[in-house]
Design a protein around this nucleic acid. Structure first.
Lengths: 161, 161
DNA sequence: CAAATACCCACGAAAACCCATTGTATCCCG
DNA sequence: CGGGATACAATGGGTTTTCGTGGGTATTTG
């Protein structure tokens, strides 16, 4: 499952009063090269207090992986339940949102809450996916390398000028 | 067997006095992309106390999945019986209902009872299918991951404001 | 005829859409 | 090489459309 186009780079964008955010153009270009959808899938990150985002095709890929796993263990009742749970997490706990012609999404209120995203959204490329952070939360997280925090600090400074 | 369009996302909609419920637009769009039917098939979920729903075309697919399962275990006599049971469940114990121009179905009384659906219906995307829950029942089910219950709680809160 | 269902319209909130402005990086040509 | 023109990105604001929902009326069906 080596994806050809990977998400990379960082940006800090504003969330406006209506809850709209521009998806950085360099991330959008990856989405559109992977498939031609102009939509992103949002999910709570499983480890960090941020959101995880990817293109719809990647979601389908994750799904088929789950399916194949299930078929191997079809007779095992425990596997059935675990499959149900993971499947629900993958699809019920995510939201698919289209971005408009200017590259903005309307951040769904539930996701905004889950990711604790305020007036600014920090976008971080993470290869197969990208992340959306409340920059302050990233700075506070002890698990985040200092070099990465420097990037966040730089993006924040850039704004104030 | 990989379906192109998958059910994703969540919503909490009201069931009115006549027993009508709006199928969330984002689920309807998947149904209409899979085939052009404007109807859904309802069934009792095999594991959870909720309803399972999908487009008519998916019923056929489910049938072939069952068949394949049978072939794998045809030496096992118990499997034969299980196949008969599950096949009946898949076809006799389901109801096909059309939704109107505003996207509402009239929830069949039997299904409403089977799923114990009250004044609110929680819709959960599950990839190939979606589920319809009484939100209170989902919150009580120990097999449901906490993250998913958070979603149910959020949807319930959203309403009260 | 009664009860259930299908059809119709209507409203408020939210979301999608359109247009305009600003700032920044890029290009082009003198 | 410099400076103006150009293209695109991010953002603000207004308008239109859609969605979920309530309620009424017709129509079918047993």
């Amino acid at each position: 499952m080596a994806l050809e186009h990977l998400f990379q780079g960082s940006a800090l964008n504003a969330v406006d009063g209506k809850g709209r955010v521009s998806i950085p153009a360099f991330l959008r270009s990856v989405i559109e090269r992977r498939g031609d959808s102009r939509t992103i899938v949002l999910a709570k990150h499983e480890a960090f207090s941020c959101l995880s985002a990817y293109d719809p095709g990647y979601a389908a890929l994750k799904h088929s992986k789950l399916e194949r796993l299930l078929e191997k263990e079809e007779t095992n009742p425990d596997a059935q339940l675990e499959y149900q749970q993971r499947n629900l997490m993958a699809f019920a706990a995510t939201e698919e949102v289209p971005y408009d012609s200017s590259g903005r999404i309307l951040m769904p209120p539930m996701m905004r809450r889950k990711g604790e995203v305020g007036d600014f959204a920090l976008f971080l490329g993470a290869g197969e996916t990208f992340q959306i952070w409340n920059p302050e939360l990233l700075l506070k997280d002890p698990r985040i390398p200092e070099d990465l925090k420097d990037i966040a600090r730089f993006r924040l400074e850039e704004r104030r000028a």
